[in-house]
Design a protein around this nucleic acid. Structure first.
Length: 658
RNA sequence: GGGGGCGUGGUGUAGCGGCUAACAUGCGGCCCUGUCAAGGCCGAGAUCGCGGGUUCGAACCCCGUCGCUCCCGCCA
């Protein structure tokens, strides 16, 4: 071994020991003779002292050392002089007086600093992720992530769960998100798909008699990125047999509560037990199904007061079947006209026609865009219902579409919560949302759609509505929410073929299509499928919240950037011709994604029968961009660079074009 | 697919029509024997992403383009 101790573990009780440490030079201080090196490994820092009086040769060697060099240091642990003790360091009571130093490796000047927090362009951090991960913040996040996964594994193992791996190469499930496809070499023109989730497989494991399954499962979805979305992400995928909804909720609640108490003891879980809100209730109170319940500012329905009030904005919204609702933005009555206008602009951005407001000044003076239309009686009722106090600012949204009212107020609520400092990261407001509608009407395609997924079991009480009134059927499904995020989604599943067929039928899947896509699970239901259900909490999101990071890239070791590119390796990149040939693929690049590739080009392409076209959209990059980027595809020859070289994404697969 | 923001030495920023482009940090050199974001002095380092336009004059204004980022759509 290169080391006898770690850099983080040495204490006053170790004084007198001779130790060997190995790690990176975190900081380096040359005092014109005496040298101080803060040596870092994963566990922490230890100060190394090199004194030329002890060893001139050593001092000479160390004079060349720079930040992030890799050193092995042998020496004796001494107490620091009293005035030199550093109370801010775990190892601040001691220091190692070096006797031997071995340079294990040197380090070039860094593209960004590791030993202090500073803003750094994220693409640079991602390009040098191996350096970025050395930083304290990243290290902490990665360790927290490990601890969370370890806690989950231990907890579920103790409760008789089996961790079972399911395939990454699987079948496309054409519903839902876009699949990542993997071409098959052995079967020309055929593809595997990477799983969007192991949904069907974990249900099949229940039919297989597993009873209690979990997996720390990688999932893949080819959709555009967000701060809380990556092309590949990790879920705690779990499923149980012979359970009802509350069996799963109780288990998960216990798991997450214990986990938070152990791994984030400084954080306060606001509600124990976690509240269970119905979908209807959460929408009415918060306007969205993943509410931030760390603070109030709840929505208030004033539609009845707004009807026939004389204020045409309110009246017409109600008359066309809409709604008028408001929130009390507490203590913000000092907002100027300009500030309220700014809020109004936001509201418009979110789809509302505008904002109505009422201010009650500290002295009780009321000013409002619509007070003059209200009778004294109605106004008093409004004030009462809004729980208005002197100093309050009330904001209202009216719209013919209830969804717009909800959405706008929900966003406004979060915005104001931020401004009022109510979104305290040390508070965890877990809650369950239950009784979602099973279907929602898809106006565009004129059919019912599953709100969760097609395998969700309708609530028994609502079976009779399946035929008569599908919109009223509630699903036996549940969401775990935390601080404005949906953390998990799950359901009791259908385990009977007849019911599954009925649901497929309702969402417009013909029996043939259902059979083709889902025959494996439909068949399995006929072989003694037990009642079962499960849930799938998002690991990345949970780590992100506990680590108080603004996006999930900060808690993933090697994430993709916003455009789904790996900045370190440059992936995705073009395949070599030989690889494509083996996969029976031929790539065509289009100059302009808006124009179709001329049919002639395709027809005259030298392809064998059975080969497949993949037509990609592509933009020709100006040659200077190519030189600047220095990618493996960089073409020094200008003529080459003028040709289309880079592809954007696979947009069409056209076997039919042959 | 659509919209907003950003792009200036290695890094982070300032400058937003008249500069020899500023500051911090990092880098190189010298000085300094108790620092811990060590300190002091000296030095190197940017034609301001790229292309075009407006102007006597562009880092600055306009257009295009590329890249990054945030948001909408999308994400059963």
């Amino acid at each position: 071994m290169y080391k006898t101790h770690t850099c983080g573990e040495l204490r006053a009780s170790d004084i007198g020991k001779t130790v060997t440490l190995a790690g990176w030079v975190h900081r380096y201080r040359d005092h014109g003779g005496v040298y101080f090196i803060d040596l870092r490994d994963r566990s922490g820092l230890t100060q190394i002292v090199i004194n030329p009086e002890d060893s001139p040769e050593l001092a000479e060697l160390v004079a060349d050392v720079r930040v992030e060099w890799v050193l092995q240091v042998n020496g004796e642990i001494n107490a620091r002089p009293t005035e030199a003790v550093n109370p801010n360091m775990d190892t601040g009571a001691i220091e190692v007086h070096a006797k031997h130093v071995t340079v294990l490796n040197t380090c070039k000047p860094l593209p960004f600093s590791i030993n202090k927090e500073e803003n750094t362009d994220e693409s640079l951090r991602l390009k040098y992720r191996f350096l970025d991960l050395r930083r304290e913040r990243m290290k902490k996040n990665i360790i927290l992530r490990h601890k969370i996964i370890k806690f989950i594994r231990d907890y579920l193992d103790e409760r008789d769960f089996l961790e079972i791996e399911t395939p990454i190469l699987f079948k496309t499930t054409p519903e839902g998100a876009r699949d990542y496809l993997v071409p098959s070499r052995i079967y020309p023109g055929q593809f595997y798909a990477l799983p969007q989730s192991p949904q069907q497989l974990k249900q099949l494991l229940q039919v297989a008699g597993t009873e209690r399954y979990f997996q720390i499962a990688r999932c893949f979805r080819d959709e555009d990125q967000r701060g809380d979305r990556q092309p590949e992400f990790t879920q705690l995928d779990m499923e149980m047999s012979f359970v009802e909804r509350d069996d799963i909720l109780d288990l998960m609640e216990d798991l997450f509560t214990k986990m938070c108490k152990k791994l984030a003891p400084e954080k306060q879980i606001l509600f124990e037990p976690w509240p269970k809100l119905t979908y209807q209730e959460v929408m009415d109170r918060f306007g969205k199904d993943a509410p931030d319940m760390r603070f109030g500012l709840e929505l208030v329905n004033i539609s009845d007061l707004a009807a026939d009030c004389g204020f045409s904005v309110f009246e017409s919204a109600i008359a066309s079947g809409g709604s008028v609702r408001g929130i009390n933005a507490k203590t913000l009555s000092g907002y100027t006209r300009k500030q309220i206008d700014e809020l109004t602009e936001m509201a418009k951005l979110w789809g509302a026609k505008g904002l109505a407001y009422a201010k009650i000044s500290e002295s009780g003076e009321e000013s409002s865009t619509f007070k003059k239309f209200f009778s004294e009686e109605r106004w008093q009722e409004l004030m009462k219902r809004m729980e208005a106090q002197p100093g309050d600012l009330l904001l209202f949204v009216a719209d013919s579409n209830l969804a717009v009212v909800y959405d706008c107020l929900a966003r406004l609520r979060v915005l104001l919560g931020d401004r009022l400092g109510l979104r305290d990261n040390n508070k965890l407001a877990f809650a369950w949302i239950v009784d979602f509608p099973l279907f929602e009407w898809d106006e565009e395609n004129k059919r019912w759609d599953a709100t969760h997924h097609a395998f969700t079991r309708p609530k028994k009480d609502d079976f009779h509505l399946l035929e008569s009134d599908p919109g009223k059927v509630r699903g036996d499904q549940y969401d775990m929410v935390l601080n404005n995020y949906e953390l998990a989604s799950g359901s009791i599943r259908i385990h009977e073929r007849w019911l599954q067929e009925k649901v497929f039928n309702l969402i417009g899947l013909s029996q043939e299509v259902a059979q083709e896509r889902f025959h494996q699970i439909m068949d399995a239901f006929e072989y003694g499928a037990p009642p079962h259900g499960g849930i799938a909490p998002g690991i990345d999101r949970f780590v992100m919240i506990l680590a108080e990071e603004p996006n999930i890239r900060e808690v993933i070791a090697f994430p993709k950037n916003n455009a789904a590119r790996d900045m370190m390796s440059g992936a995705p990149s073009e395949a070599m011709d030989g690889q494509l040939r083996e996969l029976h693929l031929k790539v065509f690049l289009r100059k302009n994604s808006r124009k179709a590739l001329p049919e002639k080009t395709i027809k005259e392409a030298p392809l064998h029968k059975g080969s497949l076209f993949i037509i990609r959209t592509a933009d020709i990059l100006p040659c200077h961009q190519f030189h600047a980027r220095a990618t493996p595809h960089c073409h020094k020859n200008t003529r080459d660079a003028e040709k289309p070289q880079r592809s954007a994404l696979v947009t069409e697969i056209g076997t039919d074009l042959l």
